[in-house]
Design a protein around this nucleic acid. Structure first.
Length: 428
DNA sequence: TCTGGGGTCCTAGGACCC
DNA sequence: TCTGGGGTCCTAGGACCC
């Protein structure tokens, strides 16, 4: 056999958001738990017990009220501050195993183990599971493969097949031969809603069928994405491990409203709040934006005749991360697409064309340097205070005090780990 | 009554230039 | 009558991911 590719592990949290809630509330053990998206809209995480009740991923809460009531399902509003912090803790534990780590999402990381003996991988996987669970309280699954795509598939098996006890490996070609035919093609990482039916129409039903496709044919039918899929499934690594996260290209802040917004002043306030938050995000990464866009639309499930979507964007004279300036921009953008009448259900602000702040050296037409520097110091002071005292300790008035447009969040748990006032209390 | 948010990559097609 | 070809850049939109 050719020198095989170094093992890659995919480690991910089981039912991550639901597990985070369980860590801090012992009464949730053995009980069905769901976590809702923003605005208490859909179930975005389900504990094993909730899955067993047949609650589908992404189910709108109003459609599962009956199941929730009948089985005493515990319902939580998304507490993303908590999940973010728990995610950071899990990553910290994982980095005790290898420096070669890519944080792929809030609940998933790829880890590389070059030179590791394949025979020892399953044991290593169990050690990882135990350490993460003991140190953070979060149960995880581990999948090993010579490529990211195969590591993802192995992770799928680790969860799906009880016998694997949370750890599986697809390092060996013979194992893949035996197993891939059992996996529906739609489970392959990168095969989504649109691609799966097209593949099935071609008679490609399993991961095995897809792996057997001629890469050139895959490219013709499904672009380079398809070709890469086929190669990755055959153990040829096309997707490297990014241990340094690539610089972000855009930042979006958007929200669904708690109720339809019909007042222009309210919509303007919401957009200002989003612009403020988006500016905060890019400042935290030392970036500045060259382009800003604002948008708002009515309920996307409404009758087509009554729908309206407005959107406007502008290129900035000089890159900026100044919240005050960006708030001014979105206000004038709103002027371009505002329309009285429709009740807006959701709005958002996008900052794009992000560049390192240091490279924004101003322009002939930009603001004079002293004014710009003053704004910069103001932003830095605000960020420092908010970092210490908690988000929105201070914020621009334009971003609103009342927030009548704010989404629903009726079942929020505490920010147990990130706010002093909400620290759990232990009684002996 | 009630249906998330935040990203990336890829392609097609138009504008523009030589 | 006849009306190039190729490259680049930008944007919009689709698909995918979690």
């Amino acid at each position: 056999m050719a020198a095989s590719a170094p093992p890659i592990a995919l480690v991910d949290g089981n039912n991550f958001f639901a597990s985070c809630e369980k860590v801090f509330d012992p009464s949730l053990r053995g009980v069905p738990v769901i976590v809702l998206s923003n605005n208490d809209g859909c179930a975005v995480a389900r504990s094993a017990e909730a899955k067993a009740l047949g609650i589908p991923m992404g189910a709108p809460l109003f459609k599962i009220r009956d199941i929730v009531a009948a089985h005493g399902v515990r319902v939580f509003s998304g507490n993303f501050e908590l999940y973010g912090d728990m995610s950071r803790r899990v990553t910290e534990v994982l980095s005790s195993f290898t420096p070669d780590l890519e944080v792929y999402s809030v609940d998933e990381s790829f880890l590389a183990f070059p030179g590791m003996d394949h025979a020892r991988l399953l044991d290593l996987g169990q050690v990882i599971r135990k350490r993460v669970e003991r140190w953070t309280g979060i149960p995880v699954g581990v999948g090993f493969g010579p490529t990211k795509t195969l590591a993802k598939l192995a992770n799928y098996l680790a969860k799906k097949v009880t016998m694997f006890d949370g750890v599986a490996s697809l390092m060996e070609a013979e194992v893949r031969q035996a197993v891939l035919a059992q996996i529906p093609v739609g489970e392959v990482w990168g095969v989504g809603r649109a691609l799966a039916p097209r593949l099935e129409a071609m008679g490609i039903r399993s991961a095995y069928d897809l792996a057997a496709l001629d890469p050139r044919q895959a490219r013709r039918a499904f672009t380079v994405v398809g070709e890469r899929l086929v190669r990755e499934l055959n153990g040829l690594s096309c997707l490297g491990l990014d241990d340094v996260p690539p610089a972000r290209q855009s930042a979006v802040v958007s929200r669904s409203f708690g109720r339809a917004v019909t007042s222009r002043a309210e919509l303007e306030e919401a957009l200002a709040a989003f612009a403020h938050r988006a500016a905060e995000k890019i400042r935290a990464e030392g970036l500045a934006a060259c382009y800003v866009q604002a948008y708002a639309h009515t309920n996307r499930f409404a009758e087509p005749e009554s729908r309206y979507a407005g959107c406007a964007g502008t290129t900035l004279i000089e890159p900026t991360a100044d919240g005050g300036l960006l708030i001014g921009e979105v206000k004038s953008l709103l002027e371009r697409f505002w329309r009285p009448g429709p009740g807006f259900a959701k709005a958002g602000v996008m900052l794009a064309g992000l560049v390192p702040e240091a490279s924004s050296m101003g322009s002939l037409f930009g603001r004079p340097a002293p004014k710009r520097d003053k704004a910069k110091r103001l932003m830095a002071a605000m960020d420092a205070l908010n970092a210490r005292m908690g988000r929105d300790t201070i914020k621009p008035l334009a971003a609103g005090l009342g927030k009548p447009w704010q989404g629903k969040s009726a079942h929020r748990s505490k920010a147990w780990t990130t706010r002093w006032a909400e620290l759990p209390v232990v009684r002996a």
